[in-house]
């Protein structure tokens, strides 16, 4: 019982190390490699390797995880994947979403914050013009929805405010999800 647990722990530690080493590989290759090595160990165990020493020998024969990953990267140029959103873009989105809520605190702060957010949005290379427009309109649209609810349906103020927030958050979420790093020319 105890023996089996120790073997499991050895295997888990080995696979964890392999997963860490393989993090730089493209996802498809990484998963395939991990599956293959996992299957190898399972086959060896099914073939009768149970004791801790036997498991240790199997892992030793497999080689160090760094060696296996090195073989997988052989001839493969590692591509540095640019992040979808940089801190700068997060600040832009954050300003666009939150600056309007500062209206009750100070109109100037709210408007200036929002305009800075707009400037950052339009100078970023993470969005197409269409998405920049949507980002620009997220506050006005939310406000328009709230106003419409208030004027045409005499909705309670709470509902109007909630609708405003919902529209802004939905549009901002869509904006974040549709951020794309520029295609690399290489």
């Amino acid at each position: 019982m105890n023996m089996e647990l120790d073997s499991d722990r050895l295997v888990d530690a080995y696979l964890n190390e392999l997963a860490t080493e393989a993090a730089a590989l493209p996802a498809g290759r990484r998963d395939e490699l991990l599956d293959d090595v996992k299957a190898h160990i399972a086959e060896a165990r099914a073939a009768g390797a149970t004791s801790e020493d036997e498991i240790r020998e199997i892992l030793q024969r497999l080689g160090r995880p760094s060696e296996i990953v090195a073989a997988a990267t052989d001839g493969l140029v590692e591509v540095e994947v640019p992040p979808r959103l940089r801190p700068w873009d997060f600040v832009a989105v954050g300003l666009l979403l939150l600056a309007p809520y500062l209206l009750s605190f100070s109109v100037i702060v709210a408007v200036v914050g929002w305009v800075i957010g707009l400037g950052m949005l339009w100078s970023s290379n993470r969005w197409t013009t269409l998405w920049k427009l949507i980002g620009t309109l997220s506050w006005p649209l939310g406000y328009a929805v709230a106003l419409a609810l208030d004027t045409f349906f005499q909705a309670p103020i709470g509902i109007s405010l909630a609708a405003d927030a919902l529209v802004s958050i939905a549009l901002t979420a869509a904006l974040v999800l549709n951020a794309r790093p520029p295609r690399q020319t290489s």
């Binding site: 490699l33 090595v37 497999l62 995880p65 296996i68 073989a71 997988a72």
Partner: peptide
């Protein structure tokens, strides 16, 4: 073969 694990990346290639 000195490290058996390196055969899997080879097979994938």
């Amino acid at each position: 073969v000195t490290t058996e694990g390196t055969i899997y990346p080879l097979l994938a290639r």
